Structures are given as C-alpha cells and as structure tokens.
Computed example of a mutant assay.
Amino acid sequence: MTIPIPDTENEEEANRILAKEVPGWDKLDKGERAELTRLACDFRKRSSPPKVKMTRKPDGGWSIEPTGKSEALALLKLHDAFSANSIDPVNARAAELLKYLGSVGADNEGRYNAALSFIESMKPHDQAEALLLVQMYCTHDAAIRALSMMGSADWVPQVQTFGNLAAKLLGTSQRQMETLARMRRGGEQVVKHIHVDNRGGQAVIAENVNQGGQKPKNEDQCHATGNSGSGPALLGHDAQGNGVPIPSRERAETVPYARRDEPRRA
C-alpha cells in the first residue's frame, strides 16, 4: 500500500488530497481523519534515511550501492549517517554491520537498511558516536535473539543459558546508551554534598548540588573554621539540656595516705 504524503501545510488542502487518494477515507470519523492528516504531515517533515542496494558477488561478498534519484544525494546521506568526511569510515562501518548480520543469517538488504535507518535517526555527532551506534544495534539484535532462543528452549539448562546471555546483553545495551548520553553531555558532572547536623537532638540535612565539577561554597560558614561548622556535635554534649560541669578555681582537698609512715615490724 502506498500512503500519499500531502506536500502542503494547509490542513484543508491536505484533507482534500487524502480524501482522494486514501482508500476508506469516507469510513473514518472526524477524529480519525484529523489524526491521519496530522501523521501524514508529520511524516513529510522527517528526512528520509539513506538506503542501499545490495548485490551478492560471485566470490561470496556483497556489492553495496546507494539508491535514489540522485547518486550524489544518496552518498551524502550515507556520509551524514556515519558522521564521516570520507568514504573509508562508511565502508568500515558497513563491513562491521555485514559481518554481524552474516553471522546470524540476516545479511540482506532489508536488515542492512534497517540498521542504517536506526543509526541515521540517532544523528551521530562524530565517528566515535557512529561506531558506538553500530555496537548498540548489534547488541540489541543479539539480545533479542537470545530472548527468542530462551522462549523456544525445551530444557531448563537451555533456558538458563539463553536467559543469562540475554540478561548480560541487555545490561551491555543499557550501559552503551548511558555511555552515549555521557558523550553528548560533554563530561558534565553532578556532585551532591550532604551535610548532617544533629545538634540539639535533631538531625538536619542540607543538600547542595554542584554541576560541572566545581566545589560548592557554603556562604553561611566562616572561612576561618573550614568545615568544622558542619561536623557532628562535640563529645559530652547533653541532648536533655544539662550543662557540662565547669571546674572551679578551688583546689581539691588532699587525699589522706592509705598507710601511715610507721616503722615496719620485723
């Protein structure tokens, strides 16, 4: 089925085009027609991903050629998808994708173009991100395959083996996404400093959040005391309010000797 995409920003004009070319338009209610029009117009605003045509070589390899009305436009789309400034990185990433897809029996035009669509949709900023996106696609595909093998397994050891493998691959996939997020944040750090003050028998927690790796400043604290103002209470503090005894200047009485100086008996 071919879905017509109205080349207009006018909603009424888009409705007239869709009414003529979409089968079953008259069976849709008002809300469904509005939703179809909105989705068709949004789809037009998206850039089309790069696509290639794959041909098997006599020696067993693949010949990959860009497709489209303009070969120049198709090549530029491939370069942009991998954030590459020459054809060499494009060929390297293509070889990596084909090697993995061939190992699982999925080296075909549809699967390769699906990988290209994923990578292009993530808009890699540089070749490091493009390389990571290739890894992310392969890791996700391997995890789904492990899950499917676990679902079709007949014996408990097989279920455990594929289940453990799927869990490891999914964990790796999550860490890859976190790595990509850190790369795009540019190394920004978020540091939390928690100060606990339990003076007076109550715990008061003050939280300072610092971004960018710089140390926070405590404006309420004397600079001469350092961090002593935020430490725990001194030993001997009485939460009930009883003061600590203060010694007087009077000297204590002399303690009598337990034994007097008497001559010892033989």
Rank of each mutant, 00 (worst) to 15 (best):
T67F: 04
G231E: 12
S103I: 08
Q174N: 12
R185F: 05
E250N: 07
G200V: 08
S228R: 12
L78V: 07
V209K: 10
E32N: 04
N208A: 11
G241M: 02
T8P: 05
R182G: 12
V209S: 08
K192Y: 15
S86F: 05
N113G: 05
K69D: 14
K51G: 04
Y112C: 05
P50G: 01
Q211R: 15
I5P: 02
N10D: 15
L75P: 00
P124S: 09
A143D: 03
S103R: 06
N85C: 05
T2E: 12
E262D: 12
N218I: 13
K45R: 14
R264V: 07
N91E: 15
R46N: 07
R251S: 08
N242F: 07
S63F: 08
P256R: 02
L116I: 11
T179Q: 15
T172H: 13
Y257T: 07
E21M: 07
K99F: 10
A115R: 08
L165E: 15
R56N: 04
Q174C: 07
Q174G: 05
G212C: 04
Q221L: 10
E129A: 05
A106Q: 13
I5E: 06
Y137F: 15
V156M: 14
S117D: 15
T225I: 13
V22P: 02
R259P: 00
S47Y: 03
A106V: 00
D29A: 02
G24P: 01
S48Y: 08
P89I: 05
V156D: 14
D59L: 01
V204E: 14
E219A: 12
L73C: 00
L28K: 08
K123L: 13
Q214A: 13
N198Q: 14
C222Q: 05
T67D: 08
T139D: 01
K215D: 11
